[in-house]
Design a protein around this nucleic acid. Structure first.
Ligand code: NAD
Ligand code: NAD
Lengths: 226, 226
DNA sequence: GCGACTTTGTGCATTTGTTCACAAGAGCGT
DNA sequence: ACGCTCTTGTGAACAAATGCACAAAGTCGC
């Protein structure tokens, strides 16, 4: 149990949020048969500063070689381990509309440490349809697809109006991590992790910055005028 | 020009990122014909603490009434104004695959201050197809759909391999805000705003916390054993 | 008008995250 | 073996964000 394990316990949230980005950049280097990389180069590929990258990695342990850089394969392994990606996590997607189907047919899961194990929808018209090698199941089979004791991630891709209900069902079934794509905030009990992905939020943040820019221009004009 | 405008200039990033959530919660209250709301209630709907909400709103100005709360309609207006949503922003989507089509047919844009004005793809098979009331255009019409001088938001929904090229084309055409859905980091010149939405990043962060949880359990066991 | 009550807005302490700058270490050529 | 060069890992300074606690400012009943 050692320092090494203890270190894992307090990786700052901001660091955890960036690790997937480093992992992705490392994947691209692996694909190009690059064996070793400096903090400067890796930071550039991941879109952060090198100081930040080094501080982040220092929370996982000391896996670089001074004067040389990081071994791509070894660092990939260490970050994967820190994130808990040494085995695949089962993922359940609820809501097989436009978005749900796009997510289900998205291949990027398997290579990233996840495996979609079930697709659910409440619409009887959709139940039974096949997508790749999974069949859409009705909501009352939710309890059967969640293995008690085994952690599992639930993805909510239903309309906003159903999102809270679906999240409640997932929690009741034993899911302890939820990723919400619906355009609404959902409440989860203590101990359940929830994250959200939201298109309109992101667009609105971009709009804010666009407006700042144009606002700054008008202000300059105003100042010139006096 | 005044304090009011000056206040707008330095809204902290963390606050800006939460404003869309407040706006959404307010929208739900409006739909329920609620006229006034306290910081406690609104904070709960948006999933934040009331202290945080009040501090956030205080950056926009002083729009609450002590002892009463906030007027839903007025606060909606003030947040919209702060975010720059008083007029619609044009949005261009590039990459009409599974995800691109789901995004294009997603109705949530219009009500949130955005309007999809063009859909582009490089695949000649897709060009000419209609989606709702837009026709998919080839990439070389990009310059025509970006009005010079008018700000516009570009959405990248192509595979990772093309994302950087597409972003470069968008920037060249004059787009100064980009939302990237591709599973890769893209570099943009100074002055261009870029945000990303990424499924696997979010799943990996959830995986980290799941693993922390199970790690904590084993540690307790180890400690008991001695 | 006035006092009781409610809820905002904010100063301050604390926590969290970022940046800087450099000593400590590793490889390499001689 | 030694000094030169390179890049890591990290302490310390700085900046941003959060949470606390309460005075200020409003409503409402009387
Ligand atoms: N489509 C997009 O690009 C997009 C983008 C951003 C956000 N979103 C959000 O994602 C969600 C889904 O979008 P969509 O376009 O796929 O919607 P959709 O209407 O096409 O699909 C929703 C699906 O959920 C199912 N569903 C509804 N209630 C359910 C319940 N209680 N239990 C199980 N299944 C239920 C419906 O049968 C339907 O198949 C929405 O909340 C939307 O705001 C979508
Ligand atoms: N589908 C999902 O649920 C999902 C989820 C998360 C992330 N993503 C990411 O979103 C991106 C798109 O996913 P998808 O499933 O829609 O892929 P897709 O392969 O179905 O569609 C990609 C589209 O982009 C077009 N395209 C390719 N190169 C182009 C170029 N240079 N210029 C213009 N158009 C080009 C293709 O013609 C195709 O129509 C991928 O990077 C994927 O990793 C997808």
């Amino acid at each position: 149990m050692s320092v090494d394990q203890a270190a894992k316990r307090d990786i700052p949230d901001a660091t955890v949020a960036r690790l997937p980005g480093y992992l992705r950049a490392l994947g691209q280097l692996t694909a190009q048969d690059v064996l070793s990389v400096s903090s400067e180069e890796l930071a550039y590929s991941a879109g952060v500063s090198s100081a930040k990258l080094r501080k982040d990695l220092s929370h996982l342990g000391s896996y670089g070689v001074r004067g040389v850089g990081y071994d791509v394969a070894h660092l990939t392994y260490q970050i994967s381990r820190a994130l808990g990606l040494t085995h695949d996590w089962p993922v359940i997607i609820v809501g097989m509309g436009n978005l749900g189907r796009a997510l289900a047919s998205y291949g990027g899961f398997a290579t990233k440490g996840f495996k979609v194990v079930a697709l659910l929808d409440r619409d009887p018209q959709l139940v039974g349809d096949r997508l790749d090698d999974l069949t859409i199941q009705p909501m009352d089979e939710l309890a059967d697809v969640v293995t008690p004791g085994e952690a599992c991630i639930g993805v909510v891709a239903t309309p906003a109006a159903s999102a809270q209900d679906v999240a409640d069902l997932l929690v009741t079934a034993g899911v302890s991590s939820i990723l919400n794509f619906a355009a609404t905030a959902i409440q989860v009990p203590e101990g359940v992790h929830m994250r959200k992905v939201d298109l309109s939020t992101e667009l609105q943040i971009l709009a804010f910055h666009e407006q700042q820019r144009s606002g700054a221009v008008s202000d300059e004009l105003l100042e010139e005028i006096g």
